[in-house]
Protein backbone atom coordinates (compact mmCIF):
# COMPACT_ATOMS: atom_id res chain seq x y z
CA UNK A 1 0.00 0.00 0.00
CA UNK A 2 1.24 3.49 -0.86
CA UNK A 3 0.97 6.08 1.92
CA UNK A 4 1.33 9.76 0.94
CA UNK A 5 1.94 12.76 3.19
CA UNK A 6 1.29 16.40 2.40
CA UNK A 7 2.13 19.82 3.88
CA UNK A 8 3.42 19.69 7.49
CA UNK A 9 2.85 15.94 7.75
CA UNK A 10 5.26 15.48 4.85
CA UNK A 11 7.77 17.85 6.50
CA UNK A 12 7.54 16.26 9.95
CA UNK A 13 7.86 12.71 8.63
CA UNK A 14 10.49 13.74 6.08
CA UNK A 15 9.01 11.70 3.24
CA UNK A 16 6.49 12.52 0.48
CA UNK A 17 5.34 8.90 0.47
CA UNK A 18 6.30 5.41 1.59
CA UNK A 19 5.21 1.93 0.64
CA UNK A 20 4.02 -0.07 3.63
CA UNK A 21 2.50 -3.45 4.25
CA UNK A 22 -0.17 -3.29 6.88
CA UNK A 23 -2.25 -5.67 8.93
CA UNK A 24 -4.66 -2.91 9.95
CA UNK A 25 -8.36 -3.26 9.17
CA UNK A 26 -9.10 0.44 9.19
CA UNK A 27 -7.44 3.85 8.93
CA UNK A 28 -7.11 4.24 12.71
CA UNK A 29 -5.23 0.92 12.86
CA UNK A 30 -2.91 2.05 10.05
CA UNK A 31 -2.22 5.33 11.89
CA UNK A 32 -1.24 3.37 15.01
CA UNK A 33 1.19 1.26 12.94
CA UNK A 34 2.67 4.30 11.19
CA UNK A 35 3.06 6.25 14.45
CA UNK A 36 5.20 3.38 15.78
CA UNK A 37 7.65 3.59 12.84
CA UNK A 38 9.70 6.54 14.17
CA UNK A 39 9.63 9.53 16.51
CA UNK A 40 8.93 11.77 13.52
CA UNK A 41 5.92 9.66 12.58
CA UNK A 42 4.70 9.70 16.19
CA UNK A 43 4.95 13.50 16.27
CA UNK A 44 3.15 13.89 12.94
CA UNK A 45 0.25 11.74 14.16
CA UNK A 46 0.18 13.11 17.73
CA UNK A 47 -2.89 15.30 17.20
CA UNK A 48 -5.36 13.47 14.98
CA UNK A 49 -7.84 16.35 15.16
CA UNK A 50 -5.48 18.14 12.74
CA UNK A 51 -5.17 15.21 10.30
CA UNK A 52 -7.44 14.38 7.38
CA UNK A 53 -7.33 11.23 5.25
CA UNK A 54 -8.12 10.29 1.66
CA UNK A 55 -8.50 6.69 0.45
CA UNK A 56 -7.71 6.22 -3.24
CA UNK A 57 -8.00 10.01 -3.64
CA UNK A 58 -11.46 10.29 -2.02
CA UNK A 59 -11.91 12.10 1.30
CA UNK A 60 -12.63 9.59 4.03
CA UNK A 61 -12.37 9.22 7.80
CA UNK A 62 -10.38 7.37 10.46
CA UNK A 63 -12.95 4.58 10.92
CA UNK A 64 -13.04 3.66 7.21
CA UNK A 65 -12.03 0.08 6.28
CA UNK A 66 -8.84 -0.43 4.26
CA UNK A 67 -9.94 -3.49 2.29
CA UNK A 68 -9.12 -3.01 -1.40
CA UNK A 69 -7.47 0.39 -0.84
CA UNK A 70 -4.20 0.95 -2.76
CA UNK A 71 -3.39 4.57 -1.84
CA UNK A 72 -3.84 6.36 1.49
CA UNK A 73 -3.01 10.04 1.94
CA UNK A 74 -2.68 11.97 5.20
CA UNK A 75 -2.76 15.77 5.29
CA UNK A 76 -3.87 18.76 7.36
CA UNK A 77 -7.22 20.49 6.71
CA UNK A 78 -7.16 21.92 3.19
CA UNK A 79 -6.47 25.60 2.57
CA UNK A 80 -7.17 26.20 -1.11
CA UNK A 81 -8.85 29.07 -2.89
Amino acid sequence: MKVLYFAWLRERIGLPFEVVSTRADDVAGLVAELAARSEAHALAFSDMRAVRVALDQELSDMSAPLAGVAEVAFFPPMTGG
Binding site: A7, W8, A73, F75, P76, P77, M78, T79, G80, G81
Partner: peptide, 26 residues
Protein backbone atom coordinates in the same frame (compact mmCIF):
# COMPACT_ATOMS: atom_id res chain seq x y z
CA UNK B 1 -17.59 26.87 -6.08
CA UNK B 2 -15.25 29.19 -4.14
CA UNK B 3 -16.66 28.08 -0.77
CA UNK B 4 -16.05 24.42 -1.69
CA UNK B 5 -12.60 25.13 -3.11
CA UNK B 6 -11.48 26.66 0.19
CA UNK B 7 -11.88 23.50 2.24
CA UNK B 8 -12.63 20.57 -0.11
CA UNK B 9 -9.88 20.80 -2.72
CA UNK B 10 -6.53 19.29 -1.65
CA UNK B 11 -4.37 22.43 -1.60
CA UNK B 12 -2.18 23.62 1.27
CA UNK B 13 -0.76 27.13 1.52
CA UNK B 14 2.57 27.93 3.08
CA UNK B 15 3.20 31.63 3.68
CA UNK B 16 6.52 33.44 3.74
CA UNK B 17 10.01 32.27 2.85
CA UNK B 18 12.75 30.18 4.47
CA UNK B 19 12.86 29.99 8.28
CA UNK B 20 9.95 32.41 8.65
CA UNK B 21 7.59 30.33 6.52
CA UNK B 22 4.53 28.72 8.07
CA UNK B 23 1.63 26.53 6.95
CA UNK B 24 -1.63 28.44 6.84
CA UNK B 25 -4.22 27.10 9.30
CA UNK B 26 -7.66 26.18 8.01
Amino acid sequence: MMDYLKSRAPFWKKEGVGEASRWVDA
